[in-house]
């Protein structure tokens, strides 16, 4: 995979307050990367550095080879890497769903028929075709968040950065938003950088990066990262309930692999064990 996003020895400070220190990190084209870490670990700062909302105090961030501190490249960087924030209410600007989604492409000065195509494609990708003429304030939190994602999609980005997009949603809204994110990654090959506090969401990623005190504390597959429960807890995090159960079962002497992260894996492994025992 080519590196679409590249951090080279990046540090960032707000005044004298060091938030990120010597970060080296890459995300490949088409990769699904989850970023974890307790509040204040530097996650949101990392996200804002990617599309040039912030620029490094030292070091460089490159998006598709473009230096984010080069102001002449900023528009192109933001077309390449779009961002979705936590609170859906702060991201919606128009009074009708389709106008909200059309807002950014209109500002690119595109042909109206091209804008129409992009809006229709984007709304379909997030499954809100039925709501295209609705007022955004009548939508649920999960639907609004999908409108925000559609607004970013209409820019046809190669990478989408999502900063705790499901924090304010209920379980149903969360699973629909996560479904959209997974589909965009698997079917359209869009690079995803997902900042989250939910371990089950991070378990869906190709790779997890854990920030602690402004530094990268772990960088590995969900299986590698979650199989060390004590380490996760020491980083202020937790493991998904299914991993917790698996580790308890191993402690009780059951011969299971310690890197189980999905419920179906555990049930399959246990049923196989039972069939072998009978």
């Amino acid at each position: 995979m080519d590196n679409l996003i590249r951090f080279e020895n990046v540090s960032f400070s707000y005044g004298t307050n060091k938030v990120l220190e010597n970060i080296d990190l890459t995300a490949g084209e088409g990769e699904f990367l989850a970023v974890l870490g307790y509040n204040g670990s530097g996650k949101s700062t990392l996200a804002k550095l990617i599309n040039g909302i912030l620029v490094p105090t030292s070091g460089k961030v490159y998006v598709d080879g473009m230096d984010t501190s080069d102001e002449t490249k900023l528009a192109d960087i933001r077309k390449t890497a779009g961002m979705v924030f936590q609170n859906p209410d702060n991201q919606i600007v128009a009074t009708i769903v389709e106008e909200d989604i059309a807002f950014a492409p209109e500002n690119l000065g595109l042909d109206p028929s091209e804008i129409r195509t992009r809006v229709d494609d984007a709304i379909r990708a997030v499954g809100l075709e039925k709501h295209i003429k609705d007022a955004p304030h009548k939508l649920s939190g999960g639907q609004k968040q999908r409108v925000a994602i559609a607004g970013v999609l209409a820019m046809q980005p190669r990478c989408i950065i999502l900063d705790e997009p499901t924090a304010m949603l209920d379980p149903k809204g969360r699973s629909l938003v996560m479904g959209v994110i997974e589909r965009l990654n698997r079917e359209k090959g869009i690079t995803i950088i997902l900042i989250t506090h939910f371990m089950e969401e991070a378990a869906l990623a190709d790779r997890i990066v854990i920030l602690s005190d402004g530094k990268i504390a772990e960088n590995g597959t969900p299986r590698q990262v979650f199989s060390d429960r004590e380490r996760m807890i020491s980083l202020g995090l937790e493991v998904p309930p299914v991993t917790e159960l698996t580790l308890d079962l191993i402690g009780n002497g059951l011969p299971l692999e310690k890197d189980i992260i999905h419920p179906e894996e555990l049930t399959e492994a246990l049923i196989k064990m039972k069939e072998a025992a009978v």
């Binding site: 089950e200 299914v242 917790e244 159960l245 308890d248 009780n252």
Partner: peptide
Amino acid sequence: PTVTGILLTLRERGLDVDTDIYTPAAAA
């Protein structure tokens, strides 16, 4: 709860587990 869902599946597939359980430790 995640572990209750796992226990229900296991029971359906013939493993004799209790299903009125909601925490990983009790499920284990």
